[in-house]
């Protein structure tokens, strides 16, 4: 065995790169394996990211390459009331969705974590809408929201309440999509929280009980701090996902909704680019969308970096 190892050692070719010694065979293998990955990263991220920045300073349209126009596009969108409305809609949608997606999901996960029958079955039902294609479930909810023959208004009428216009109403359209979106996505976060809760050793909770902690105290002082990394992840992904929301919006309210009330930033980008052919403007709006997401996720991770605890 020993001599064999020696033999192999002797046959290994070494190379020195940037002052460190590597095994040549490994480097070759890595280059071959990483080349397609790097090519994909270059073509699908680096190149388009550079281009989106460059194009945002041109008056490019679908039919012509365009010329450099400085910050004209940014000036245009930042004075376009439709753009601000789309930002307002997106922020409103994102805030409400994040509140429900974390708060409600945590509540459901806490309940699922308690001693109940049929836990596995219940868990699956909350998770089921997550895996269903969003367009397919949108079709169901378009009907649910129908003001004339939709089940939701029938339920409201049966309860003696005023029927709503749902997707057709200026004040209710965004809320309707929010309801759909929470129904659709909450199971994902429930699952994450639940796993987090189940990873908390029983001994921690038992110990806190011995010390006379109430249910609420053990939640706030032990469970929530230990769930912090998961909460961070959920909020981070939530920010990215809600700011890029498009599919359900486009299927349920194809024209941006009544009075442009459901138009998101992505809707604005899409309309500029493919409705009006203004590629330069669409790129400038994409940059602003990216900056918003970037700043928010940075703030979020800075705020939380110092607060993570570990009781091990």
């Amino acid at each position: 065995m020993k001599s064999q190892t020696k033999e192999i050692r002797a046959s290994i070719h070494r190379v020195r790169i940037f002052g460190r010694v590597y095994e040549r065979e490994q480097v070759t293998a890595a280059v071959v394996l990483m080349a397609p990955v790097l090519f994909a990263v270059f073509m699908l991220f680096i190149l388009p990211v550079v281009q989106v920045v460059v194009y945002s300073f041109t008056n490019m349209t679908t039919s012509q390459r365009g010329t450099f126009v400085g910050i004209e596009n940014y000036k245009y969108i930042l004075s376009d009331s439709k753009f601000f409305q789309s930002i307002r809609n997106t922020v409103l949608f994102a805030v409400l969705k994040l509140v429900f997606d974390t708060g409600l999901a945590l509540a459901i996960a806490l309940m699922l974590d308690s001693n109940i029958p049929l836990r596995k079955f219940l868990r699956s039902t909350y998770f089921a809408p997550v895996v269903v294609p969003v367009v397919a479930s949108s079709l169901i909810w378009i009907w649910f929201f129908d003001p004339d023959v939709g089940p939701l208004n029938m339920i409201l009428e049966a309860l003696g309440l005023q029927p709503l216009l749902w997707l057709n109403g200026k004040g209710t359209a965004l809320i309707s999509i929010l309801i759909f979106s929470v129904w659709k996505g909450i199971g994902y976060n429930v699952m994450l929280f639940l796993t987090g809760l189940q990873n908390i050793p029983d001994s921690y909770i038992e110990a806190s009980k011995v010390d006379g902690a109430s249910w609420w105290q053990s939640l706030v002082k032990i469970k929530l701090p230990l769930l912090r990394p998961i909460t961070n992840f959920i909020v981070m992904i939530g920010i990215i996902n809600t700011f890029k929301v498009f599919a359900e919006i486009d299927v349920m309210t194809p024209t941006g909704g009544p009075g442009y009330s459901t138009a998101m930033i992505v809707t604005y980008i899409y309309n500029q680019a493919f409705g009006r052919g203004k590629m330069g403007r669409a790129c400038a709006s994409s940059i602003i969308l990216f900056l918003i997401i970037f700043v928010l996720t940075q703030i979020q991770s800075r705020m939380n970096a110092s607060k993570t605890v570990d009781y091990e």
Binding site: L44, V49, Q51, V52, A273, A282, I287, I293, F294
Partner: peptide, 17 residues
């Protein structure tokens, strides 16, 4: 870092590519 660049941001250049 690619995780922080959602595809909607690069949609237009991608379409042109």
């Amino acid at each position: 870092s690619t995780m922080f660049v959602p595809m909607v941001v690069t949609l237009i250049p991608m379409y042109l590519i």
